[in-house]
Design a protein around this nucleic acid. Structure first.
Lengths: 236, 236
DNA sequence: CGCAAAGTTGACGCGTGTCAACACCGGTGG
DNA sequence: CCACCGGTGTTGACACGCGTCAACTTTGCG
């Protein structure tokens, strides 16, 4: 199960965003809070850069962040979208492989000095296991995302993206989702052009799958139409 | 305990496939060999299935394996291509998320009972750290693969695929690579159709980037043309 | 009010999926 | 030995969806 699920923008500074484990055992992660530093970033601000020494592990507290890469042809690609509860900064080397930037204003992040965290994990095997589990979750997320990327039609990609965002959004499977990112971000995330993302969204709207309150507020109307958005039927 | 048949590939040293760590310290993974069981699979045979209890971690000794998923529209997708040295079976839940099958005949795999491995890691923090590191590597591989998937043209996807396979192939960056898998596998791996894969390969051949000895033997001629295969110049 | 960034919509060319036909290869049985 | 067969790989024809370029509208901010 996921640890996440819990975050809300307006959580107080405590560690209430840390999902409590089932009753009698506390989450081993709590011991890592002793070395956490809270950082706050502006919209677009770099959290760390590619090639820098990987000195920290991070966790999103509130807001959102993106993992960016620039490929040979100059296109930017967004490798990961990081939401509250997500860890990042995991790398097998001693240098970071990608840039990470804040997506929204006042993105708050906890960071943990890597060497100190490793030391903690060495003496607390429960913590070590928990971090492995978190890494496995990140891997599974990445693989699930790959399936999304492999979709043929743009409408399916965008539909699955909105659905996933809704599933992970604060109120669980609520019907309204807000897209914290710009169309450009979505395009780079799904390996599409901005125009195609825009067209896919209006297409989903015309199909009756979603409604767009504002450009960043999506209300999901027909959940199944969203996910299986291939039925090229309607055209209002 | 109970390693019956060591992989018979002409490995001289007992665990030469185990990456030696720098100097004075042995790889912590070696202690995990005490609980390894060696398994052998036929071409196409299932190693484990989606939804089964995740009881083991695995490592490819020789041969190759693929992580498969079937998406809603019935298409098969290959999520991971597992080559010798790669670990798999990592999942945050208690059930496997995907199917894994052997790609080539006589694929040999070591498996480690998950609970026993966790116990070992709990008492040997070096091992725990090493496993985290391996999980981070798997994550990085997955992310690198995503960048490959995000390429626009099929020729770039296939070119990068061949290049990566060459880089990871036994003889390092040798000039001849053999594709252990069928065109169908490549297609499902790159989210393309079989025909497009075939066309991309002949396109690369006509561009002078590669030569095809047989259908599964690729000789790399122009390395840069392979990677930046977008210059839509020649057409023999 | 005015400017710039972000988002939308249209027109058009090209790459890829699809369907189809064919070539190639290994195995089987007459 | 050859005929037959199924699986695999290649090539062609065609339609459609996406990228690109362009123009316009909307939003946000001073």
């Amino acid at each position: 199960m996921l640890i996440t699920e819990q975050r809300r923008q307006d959580e107080p500074a405590s560690s209430s965003w840390l999902r409590q484990r089932p009753e009698r055992h506390r989450d081993p992660l709590e011991v890592m809070e002793s070395i956490s530093e809270i950082m706050r970033y502006c919209r677009g601000q770099e959290i760390y850069g590619r090639g820098e020494p990987a000195e920290y592990w991070y966790r999103v507290i509130s807001g959102a962040a993106r993992t960016c890469a620039v490929q040979a042809d100059g296109r930017r690609r967004i490798v990961e979208l990081l939401l509250p509860g997500d860890f990042f900064g995991f790398t097998p080397r001693d240098r970071n492989a990608f840039d990470v930037e804040a997506v929204v204003e006042d993105t708050v992040v906890a960071r943990y000095a890597r060497c100190r965290a490793e030391t903690l994990a060495a003496s607390d095997s429960g913590l070590g296991q928990r971090i492995r589990e978190i890494a496995f979750e990140a891997l599974l997320r990445s693989q699930a995302r790959m399936l999304m990327l492999g979709q043929i039609t743009a409408r399916k990609k965008v539909g699955l993206f909105v659905a996933e965002l809704a599933r992970r959004s604060p109120d669980g499977a609520g019907e309204t989702v807000d897209l914290p990112m710009s169309r450009y971000d979505i395009a780079d995330y799904l390996a599409l052009s901005v125009e195609t993302v825009s067209r896919a969204l209006t297409g989903l709207r015309q199909c009756g799958a979603i409604a767009l309150a504002s450009a960043h507020q999506v209300r999901i109307i027909d959940w199944s139409a969203l996910k299986e958005a291939s039925d090229d039927s309607e055209r209002d």
